[in-house]
């Protein structure tokens, strides 16, 4: 009798757990959604102020859900950059999501169906990854999906609102608001420097190189008496790719992450391959914390 009852009870239990995880994901996704609204507002507003159609900015946000990548892409599109630039810029700037997806895949619940994993991939952002990976035990697809269900609409709605406001606001307000995204970027990159001093060097190097590529050609031409326009002027997209790759590679070489940190991450993942629920499914390592 018991043998027939167990499979049915397990299935509805699993479904109930999934719904609960989804709800918790939605709850934890709310602060992310609010932050996304603010940043994507700046994106929508900047895009429209620089001539893009509001609808196109919203489509970009809906299909990408990246902040650095979208702003970089915006620069290239507005500068009529090549398709290759768009490809390379997105590849380089978003490459870290590959590492995040690796991490999630390593700790994924073993029975997670493919369609859920593919859906989850779409929402691998810094913040959603952050709340998914720091939950103890296996990564629960439904939790991740719940966060996506709240955060991504926040991102899209923010873009739409920013796009609309961009058309309505007078020029003097727009000029002031145009620095909002840069303010946000700085708010992201400056605070971690307190703990990680290498970042200071990295940011200084990146900004110096970026300025050099922007003003260098003109200054060199003037100093050397060359014909104006002789030296190449890089588009914003190419510049971002070159500076990012060069600066990040340089610092990965001279200031790599401490080995203990990388090893500790790996060890933590091994330890936590233990399920949160009490059904017999042992993790591959099976060790308790």
């Amino acid at each position: 009798m018991l043998i027939f009852c167990v499979p049915v009870r397990e299935k509805t239990e699993v479904e109930a757990l999934n719904r609960e995880n989804f709800r918790m994901g939605m709850r934890d996704g709310i602060p992310i959604a609010l932050g996304y609204f603010a940043v994507s507002f700046a994106f929508g507003m900047t895009a429209v102020a620089d001539g893009m159609r509001g609808m196109d900015a919203v489509i970009i946000s809906a299909t990408n859900v990246t902040s650095a990548g979208q702003f970089a892409g915006l620069g290239i599109i507005l500068g009529d950059g090549s398709y290759l630039e768009i490809l390379l810029s997105q590849l380089v700037i978003n490459l870290r999501y590959m590492l995040m997806s690796f991490s999630l895949a390593q700790r994924m619940e073993p029975d997670a169906p493919l369609y859920k994993r593919l859906l989850m991939s779409f929402g691998v952002t810094d913040e959603i990854f952050g709340i998914s990976i720091t939950r103890p035990g296996y990564v629960r697809p439904d939790f991740h999906l719940g966060a996506m269900a709240v955060a991504i609409p926040g991102w899209v709605l923010g873009t739409a609102t920013g796009a609309v406001m961009g058309k309505l606001l007078p020029a003097m307000i727009l000029s002031a608001l145009s620095v909002a995204i840069y303010g946000m970027f700085l708010a992201i990159i400056i605070p971690p420097m307190e703990k990680d001093h290498s970042l200071l060097g990295l940011v200084l190097a990146a900004m110096s190189l970026s300025a050099a590529l922007a003003y260098g050609p003109e200054l060199l031409e003037g100093a050397l008496g060359l014909v104006s326009g002789l030296l190449p002027r890089l588009s914003s997209g190419t510049s971002v790719i070159i500076v990012t790759v060069f600066a990040a590679a340089l610092f990965a070489w001279i200031r790599p992450l401490p080995q203990e940190e990388a090893d500790a991450d790996a060890a933590e993942e091994d330890r936590e391959k233990v399920p949160a629920d009490s059904t017999g499914n042992g993790g591959e390592k099976g060790r308790k914390k």
Binding site: I93, R96, S103, L202, A214, T244, A252, R255, L257
Partner: peptide, 26 residues
Amino acid sequence: EIRSPFFKSFLYYVPYAALASMTFPA
């Protein structure tokens, strides 16, 4: 999983380098 310390460090630095280069001198 990619365990190369160089690659992991590189990916760690990329967002900071990207945001920094997009901020200044723009």
